[in-house]
Amino acid sequence: MKALEVSHIYKTYNDITALKDVSFNVAEGELFGLIGPDGAGKTSLIRIIITLLLADSGEIHLLGKDVVKEYKYLRSRIGYMPGRFSLYSDLTVLENLNFFATVFGTSIEANYNLIKNIYSQIEMFKDRKAGDLSGGMKQKLGLSCALIHKPEVLFLDEPTTGVDAVSRKEFWEMLQELKQKGITIIVSTPYMDEAEMCDRVALLQKGEIMSIDTPQNIINEFSEELIEIKTPDLYEVKEKLRLEFGKNSAFMFGQSIHFSTSSKSKSKELLNEFFEENNFNIESVNIIEPNIEDCFIKLMTKDS
């Protein structure tokens, strides 16, 4: 069964189009990622799905129910962790958790099993005010509060923004555990490298979905070769490549240049010829595997 079916969603704010013909499905038990930069429409989309915002047009079924007509049914069955820390700073860790359990007519004890692995990491601070927690701990408390009523679908809006790499890693491990327990998870992030933690992802840009697939398939569909060039004259070589092959063909990456063109394959031969003609001092030219960010850029520049 589909946990979520989104069809042809449009949303505008005054004259700004936030979402344009967005459609996708999420299967039950799937860990689904909405990947896109600030302003791509991630938050609007999540808020429309979880019944907090109305779309201009289009339809959404969550757990088989229409999100506009059956919002009351749905609200008790979904968990939501917004992008901004939105717990009560003046309440303690335990008071926050108790509050959210009570609002949903349940108790911490009833669903402790579900949050045990997460909450146990902050339980020693249960009498500390939520506002005094570190970023990583706030995030764990936020997740505990979003789970305490045992939701069937969990929505997380940019849960890892501003958290350090260790906490981020731990957070994704927690999501994997929740997935094992059968919870459907929809998570948004501006960080392209987090795509690989998801079963499937939608790449979102300016309110439109550019691609939906497994991270590996998206990478496999990168239609050209990505080439890493090492040279002592990085800046000069990069500039020359751009003049010859276009402004998005070459980018600096620390001690190397990443190069790709829309001409399919053989770009390595093409490059070697170009370097020879121009007498550049080149140390190495290697084909490397693209990452999601490379794919995202390719999709962004496809139409322009």
Partner: peptide
């Protein structure tokens, strides 16, 4: 460069490489 789209981010790094130049 937190949160910006990848093209903007690379343009940003272009500025950085110009600065070191």
């Amino acid at each position: 460069t937190g949160g910006v789209d990848p093209i903007t981010r690379r343009q940003f790094w272009d500025l950085i490489y110009e600065a070191i130049d």
